[in-house]
Design a protein around this nucleic acid. Sequence first.
DNA 1: ACAATAGTGTCTGTAAGACAGTATTGG
DNA 2: CCAATACTGTCTTACAGACACTATTGT
Lengths: 238, 238
Amino acid sequence: MSLSREVSRSVDFERPLVTVDVVIFTVVDDRLCVLLVRRPDDEDEPFPGRWALPGGFVDVQQDASLLACAQRKLRAKTGVASPYLEQLGSWGDAKRDPRGWSSTHAYFALIARPASQEAGRTPAEWLPLDQALRRRLAFDHNVLLNAAIERLRGKVEYTSLPAFLLPEPFTLPQLQRVYEVVLDRALDKSAFRKRMLDADYLDEAGPVTGDHGRPAMGYRLRERERATVFPRGFKSGE
Amino acid sequence: MSLSREVSRSVDFERPLVTVDVVIFTVVDDRLCVLLVRRPDDEDEPFPGRWALPGGFVDVQQDASLLACAQRKLRAKTGVASPYLEQLGSWGDAKRDPRGWSSTHAYFALIARPASQEAGRTPAEWLPLDQALRRRLAFDHNVLLNAAIERLRGKVEYTSLPAFLLPEPFTLPQLQRVYEVVLDRALDKSAFRKRMLDADYLDEAGPVTGDHGRPAMGYRLRERERATVFPRGFKSGE
DNA sequence: ACAATAGTGTCTGTAAGACAGTATTGG
DNA sequence: CCAATACTGTCTTACAGACACTATTGT
């Protein structure tokens, strides 16, 4: 450190541990799934052998920022480079990690189902949401997971988020199915299509032929950087 | 520390600095204001003499959690015990603090205008928003402030947040004025009143007499713990 | 009586949902 | 021609905004 002693003294507090965790969603066979990893069996580690969200310590040498750290962890587990990634919130207190006062910065990510089941070295698993919710995860990761689901369900009502869960090109019926899977209720076809097309966030990408019946128009996101916000939610007087 | 050496070795990373900052809003004379504090003039401190958001290091001895830390800082500056307080997000990178890799957990708070201008020891000032935005604040606090304003304006469209900016009991015309101040546009009286009363989140508290004209009904929040979310925003086809 | 403010009633346009209809493919 | 799926058109209804109206106070 090249700082003078006065400056470094002003920083001479006991510092909390700082981690980043990522809740990564995808859709497999019309089911919303989340990626979990197994913690090492080493008894000196906290929560040995338990399932947890992907994450870990911020590396001040390697990570330029929190976002970069989250992207690194996501890429290490999934190999996906351009996901939808947003900050979920932060959780920090004296008790959540047995090693000491710790705070985590949680992100949540939406990706299209990766071809390969495993990409990293640590055991990882795509688990349907209902099963993941029944597991007792490491740390306070059940709290984080619940927050992520709440955020996702909430935003799906009035944004284009589900489009990031599908590989391109996708059709409107496919997209509607994803909305219905996440929201766990049926949507009206006509209203749904009007919404999507009026929002003007999709580009046509030629017809896509399915197993039976009439082929559907394929679409791509015009912008993969941000989600589109619709003027209203589904079902006003819910 | 009562941990074994193996465990402490697994935590032997260089730890970032961890701070909490709070963006505190109130309304004074029909203007939205934010609380700023002056950083010490000591040349060994970063950004000496500059204005900044209230905040500082997490104290792992004193603060049980991030929220408790934010509440402590808010209370120290304003004396307010039961504000509206929500997490805004976190910002962390290698460059934002000259003392090293640092991450801050930002909160934003809404309070009724305190009677006393000053409550703490450090110089503090309620500054109208437009003036605050023109200042060059310490650290990345301009970014935090902008994020807070965006969040506030966004949520005011479809929540009861402005009610937390007024002392109770307040009248519907007063509340409407606050909405208009924050949104910086006029709202229709009839639609506004329907919205507020239909949402069923206010309790009548007897008539309140103003300077001129007919007295208005006073109201209190039925629940001060959380904001009410309206089924729709103002002005659908904006 | 009048100014000033609080509160209500009525009309209208918009847009989402319901649902039935048409279109296009493969077998 | 039929099954299966994609897509469109029309009707209805709910509700927010516009705006004019009534109500209640002080001077």
